[in-house]
Amino acid sequence: MTIANEGSSIMADDHTHNEPPSDTAMRVKALETLLTEKGLLDPAAIDALVETYETRIGPRNGARVVARAWTDPDYRQRLLEDGTKAIAELGFSGVQGEDMVVVENTGDVHNMVVCTLCSCYPWPTLGLPPIWFKSAPYRARAVIDPRGVLKEFGVELSEDVELRVWDSNAELRYLVLPQRPAGTEGMSEDELAELVSRDSMIGTALADAPAG
């Protein structure tokens, strides 16, 4: 995964940058420098955290959970009963995933997730939230016009499908278990995981249809 190249030289190498850092970048650098000088922060720890969330923690983790639930009915049952525990079975746990609730889409019910108060999001299974999830328009509208929001995301729900909107909070995080697409009967767990997008686990998309 690439990071924004613009500005990446600011922190990494003070001698090669061509433009002065932005005010915010400078504030952050000053804060990090102060805390480091006080012995309260190890920059290497931050390097490691950034790398972890750029390369190892993301929606592919959640896709593994969904694919397992689609192929293993016992696992699906455990997942719906105790999301945190069942997700940890696959090795995904930790900060911002301490209390997970998995909500299942069916032919009658569609679930979508928002955090109106800030941007609470299940990091271990989905990584860090996309900008739109953190944006004022999504946070405001997801609870007052969820069908309209879904339409913008390309999901047209039939009027007789019940739509449930889950508002995350500081402790509790939701993962949507999307419906398994038709025509995937013979597919392996790995192949199925490829059909599970980030947005399908937020509930603003359906799982992808198999190719061809």
Partner: peptide, 23 residues
Amino acid sequence: MGPIEREENEPAFHETWEGRVFG
């Protein structure tokens, strides 16, 4: 609040300083 704007293939951090704050 205006339209919901989405970005394809969004990176984890858009600026280096965001990663430092996150850490």
